[in-house]
Amino acid sequence: MNRALSGKVAIVTGASRGIGKGIALQLAEAGARVYITGRTLLPNGRGTSLTDCVEEIKQRGGRAIPVQCDHEKDDEVKDLFARVSTEQNGRLDILVNNAYSAAPADIDHVEKPKRFWDQPLEMWNQTNSVGMRGVYICAVYAARLMVPARKGLIVNISSEGGLTYGLNPCYCVGKAAVDRIASDCAHELRERNVAFLSLWPGATRTELWMEWAENCQTKTSLQTTERDRYVLNSESPEFSGKGIVHLASDPDIMRKSGRIFTTGDLADEYGFKDIDGRSPPDYVRRARDRLSLTGHTTLAAWVPSFVKIPGWMLSAYYHIW
């Protein structure tokens, strides 16, 4: 896949750290010119910044353009896409909607769970003004560049929270909406040859997650043994990026449009591994990994790795009709 995206133009939102940064690193390493966004250019107290991401990309021989953008502010989002259009002669090949402003609040919720009626009403906006509304607005501006060119790929970073309960209702409703945005927008984009899909990363070793795991004292919502299992069997932030590089290089990408994929799905189909050479578990789709996560390790050992739980079965299991 070396330089497979040479000449492509990409935007990755929320790329100062975590999965967004990992995606930007992989896209740039594959040759794409990547615009990366964040609320600040310089470190904001957690030791990560857009400028750090740009420097790391340079060290790998890639190119990134940092853009300070608060995705709660419509004018700043509009200016971002206008700048890309001006500087790249109207070209945009890839948009990754990753920006999400509630990660610290979500981690606090894991440490000290509260029911939705005990949470401040602001939790809804904190979770969904960027994570849901911002995704839609970016998709609108991206489509306005991609549709005339009759090509492009939009990827929403979502999670299993769109299918089943996790963390809190605000989080789950937001992820379900992000998946639905991809599905419904893909329906209207299909005849314009623009692909739109959702990607569910697994447990990922982001900076925030690892900081929490190292300091975790809880014995309730996430037991210590379960926490350790996730840490030892989790993805690097670049694993999602590897998947998106393959998606953006797939000549038949339109057959995937409108669908949801896990990072494990993509790794199985395209045959890639994480940056450390491992194949992280897919706790959503791979039957063996899901059994192992729930403690059925002996049974899991007998299940072949290629056995997957169909999407319709997951939906039927988690929903009451």
Rank of each mutant, 00 (worst) to 15 (best):
D79R: 15
S85A: 15
G31I: 00
R46K: 10
F81H: 12
S85H: 05
Q59F: 04
P66C: 15
T48E: 13
L80S: 03
K73S: 01
D70R: 00
L80K: 01
V54C: 15
C53W: 03
T86L: 07
I57Q: 04
I65D: 07
T86H: 13
F81S: 05
H71E: 01
G61M: 03
I36Q: 11
N44K: 05
P66A: 15
V67Y: 07
R83V: 05
A82E: 07
G38Q: 06
E72T: 07
R63M: 02
F81V: 02
G61E: 07
R46Y: 14
S85I: 03
L50K: 11
G38I: 13
R83F: 09
E55L: 10
R63Y: 05
S49A: 10
H71Q: 09
I36W: 00
Q59D: 08
H71L: 09
G61P: 04
P43L: 02
T51E: 06
P43H: 02
D52N: 12
T37C: 08
H71N: 06
V34F: 01
V54M: 13
A64Y: 09
L80I: 08
R63C: 05
I57T: 08
A82R: 10
I36A: 08
D52G: 12
G62E: 10
L50D: 10
G31P: 02
D52M: 11
I36K: 04
K78Y: 00
T86N: 07
G62P: 14
I36G: 07
Y35S: 04
I36H: 05
G62N: 06
A64V: 02
G61C: 06
G47R: 00
I57E: 03
V54E: 14
R46P: 00
R60C: 04
I65L: 14
R83K: 14
P66D: 12
L42S: 11
P66H: 15
R46V: 12
F81L: 14
L42A: 12
R63W: 02
V54Y: 11
A32P: 13
G38L: 12
E56P: 03
D74V: 06
L80F: 02
C69W: 08
S49R: 04
A32T: 03
D74H: 02
D79K: 15
V34T: 07
D74F: 01
E72Q: 13
T51R: 12
V77H: 00
L80T: 00
A82D: 03
L41H: 12
D74G: 07
D52F: 09
R39D: 13
T40L: 08
T86G: 05
R39P: 08
E55T: 10
T40N: 11
I65H: 09
L42G: 00
L80Q: 01
D52H: 14
P66V: 11
P43T: 06
D52A: 10
P43C: 01
T86A: 10
D70T: 09
R63E: 07
Q59R: 04
K78R: 12
R83H: 11
R39E: 13
L42E: 15
S49Y: 08
A64M: 06
E76A: 15
K78Q: 04
G61Y: 00
G31S: 05
